[in-house]
Computed example of a mutant assay.
Amino acid sequence: MAKIRDIDLGDFPLLLAPMEDVSDPPFRALCKKNGADLMYTEFISSEGLIRDAVKSVKKLDIFEYERPVGIQIFGYDIESMKRATEITEQTNPDIIDINYGCPVKKVACKGAGAGILQDIPKMVRMTEEIVKTTKLPVTVKTRLGWDDNSKHIVEVAERLQDVGIEAISIHGRTRKQMYKGEADWSLIAEVKNNSRMHIPVFGNGDIDSPEKAVEYKNKFGVDGIMIGRASIGYPWIFNEIKHYQKTGQHLPKPTIKERVAVTREHLEMSIKWKGETLGIAEMKRHYTNYFKGIPHFKDYRTKLVTSFNLEEIRAILEEVEVKFSGVETLV
């Protein structure tokens, strides 16, 4: 049973990873509906929160139906991170999560995200100060290390636990790897098997099928799995994993009708949350994923990503539903 303080996540929770420009409220709502047990917001800049930047503040939006939900913050300055924690706490999330894993150059090279993996003492100090600043449980998302010569995650996880974090999610790559190569879960297992660790340890990286999720659960013994890229355009993955874990059977793949219905729902929620112009623009990255593996779909994909007219997009989706009804997807 995985618990973060008094938040009961069940026997083997599936977490939605925080993903920039993806894990917004509309997407989280769909993942929740399809079996995600705990979700995190897109990462939010501590400096942006302090300056009251519109984009950063907007990311604090959370809704009752998505609980439990964690808000993830990042930054390089300890005082700024403490202030951002106070601002975040006022929006009443269930958890505050610290991003120590983002590998993107503009974040990491400023010493935030995965950049702090080059300064473990500062990472520990920052974490301790954040824990002291809030009454909420604090969790951490991080990587194995900065590069192959600094994979100190077993020691780092223990030190972070000692200053008060209540769960850790570990992406099985270094910052240098970015998202390339295979994720190394053996070190995540070492963290979990460290006899001094008593907080939940969640694994992240490369889980893209029910089989792999169950294999990694059994092989590496983690308390739960965090899923990122495999959920983009495919929120069904959470329930598919749960069903396979319980029965050893696969759920049927979503039909074209179901894919169109979820795309429509995502689009309408996106517009409701962001307004029509931005809502339509930001859906474009999702269309390719929702209709991935459908043969001869290229023309429709082009129409969807080039249209800025809501009625036209609705009409295209209707046409897709009729034209591709009964077509098996390739993935």
Rank of each mutant, 00 (worst) to 15 (best):
residue 12 F to N: 02
residue 108 A to L: 06
residue 294 I to V: 12
residue 18 P to G: 03
residue 222 V to F: 06
residue 18 P to T: 03
residue 125 R to D: 15
residue 76 Y to G: 00
residue 204 N to W: 11
residue 35 G to Y: 08
residue 171 H to Y: 11
residue 55 K to A: 10
residue 68 P to K: 03
residue 300 Y to R: 13
residue 193 N to T: 13
residue 118 Q to G: 13
residue 250 H to G: 10
residue 206 D to K: 10
residue 246 K to P: 00
residue 10 G to Y: 05
residue 180 K to E: 09
residue 161 Q to C: 05
residue 180 K to V: 09
residue 106 K to T: 05
residue 24 D to M: 11
residue 77 D to W: 00
residue 257 K to Q: 15
residue 28 R to N: 07
residue 238 F to V: 14
residue 300 Y to Q: 05
residue 179 Y to A: 02
residue 225 I to L: 14
residue 43 F to P: 03
residue 1 M to C: 08
residue 305 V to P: 01
residue 224 G to S: 02
residue 226 M to P: 00
residue 289 N to H: 14
residue 121 P to N: 05
residue 159 R to V: 08
residue 40 Y to T: 12
residue 168 I to L: 07
residue 58 K to P: 09
residue 222 V to H: 04
residue 69 V to F: 03
residue 245 Q to R: 14
residue 110 K to F: 10
residue 304 L to Q: 09
residue 329 T to H: 04
residue 243 H to S: 07
residue 130 I to S: 09
residue 330 L to R: 15
residue 177 Q to H: 08
residue 150 S to H: 01
residue 317 L to N: 07
residue 250 H to F: 14
residue 137 P to L: 10
residue 103 P to M: 04
residue 225 I to V: 11
residue 111 G to P: 00
residue 165 I to Q: 04
residue 281 A to D: 12
residue 267 L to P: 07
residue 309 N to F: 03
residue 170 I to S: 12
residue 70 G to D: 01
residue 225 I to M: 10
residue 90 Q to D: 15
residue 325 S to T: 09
residue 130 I to Q: 03
residue 201 V to Y: 07
residue 218 N to Y: 10
residue 223 D to L: 09
residue 72 Q to V: 03
residue 178 M to P: 09
residue 29 A to N: 14
residue 21 D to R: 14
residue 15 L to P: 10
residue 52 D to G: 14
residue 322 V to C: 06
residue 185 W to P: 00
residue 189 A to M: 10
residue 227 I to H: 03
residue 254 P to E: 02
residue 330 L to N: 12
residue 237 I to G: 04
residue 67 R to A: 01
residue 301 R to S: 11
residue 27 F to D: 00
residue 160 L to V: 00
residue 104 V to N: 07
residue 214 V to S: 11
residue 31 C to S: 11
residue 304 L to I: 07
residue 151 K to H: 05
residue 11 D to L: 12
residue 265 E to G: 06
residue 134 T to I: 13
residue 275 G to I: 08
residue 160 L to C: 08
residue 331 V to I: 15
residue 146 W to Q: 02
residue 73 I to W: 06
residue 295 P to A: 13
residue 138 V to T: 04
residue 274 K to R: 14
residue 237 I to W: 05
residue 83 R to F: 05
residue 206 D to P: 02
residue 2 A to M: 15
residue 144 L to M: 00
residue 124 V to I: 14
residue 91 T to R: 15
residue 304 L to K: 04
residue 166 E to Q: 15
residue 220 F to W: 03
residue 105 K to R: 04
residue 118 Q to H: 13
residue 85 T to Q: 09
residue 202 F to C: 00
residue 48 G to W: 01
residue 30 L to I: 04
residue 111 G to A: 12
residue 92 N to C: 11
residue 74 F to A: 06
residue 240 E to V: 01
residue 304 L to M: 11
residue 124 V to R: 08
residue 16 L to A: 10
residue 64 E to P: 05
residue 79 E to M: 12
residue 195 S to D: 15
residue 79 E to N: 15
residue 36 A to Q: 01
residue 272 K to M: 06
residue 306 T to S: 15
residue 154 V to K: 07
residue 105 K to N: 13
residue 321 E to V: 08
residue 330 L to S: 14
residue 138 V to A: 02
residue 98 I to E: 10
residue 41 T to L: 01
residue 224 G to T: 01
residue 225 I to D: 03
residue 27 F to W: 04
